[in-house]
């Protein structure tokens, strides 16, 4: 295990490359969901408001 984590002396390079990839991919994947929730909530609110007119 210790040996695996050390990556033959390249631990800093290998793990940082994978960590950055994970962060960028997760952020990219989450973004549309956040936008969708915001947009759908705004639309539902507007429709409700239109009905109460």
């Amino acid at each position: 295990m210790q040996e695996f984590l050390q990556m033959g002396g390249y631990a800093g390079y290998v793990w940082s490359a994978y960590a950055i990839t994970a962060v960028v991919l997760i952020a990219t994947a989450l973004w549309p969901g956040i936008r969708r929730r915001r947009l759908h909530a705004a639309l539902r609110k507007r429709w409700q408001w239109e009905r109460s007119e």
């Binding site: 033959g8 002396g9 990839t21």
Partner: peptide, 21 residues
């Protein structure tokens, strides 16, 4: 790519960056 491939004979374990790069 990180755990079950052999180490590269020239680049050592740094070659594993290939799997994301």
């Amino acid at each position: 790519g990180l755990a079950f491939t052999p180490t590269d004979y020239q680049q050592g374990d740094s070659f594993r960056i290939i799997y994301v790069h």
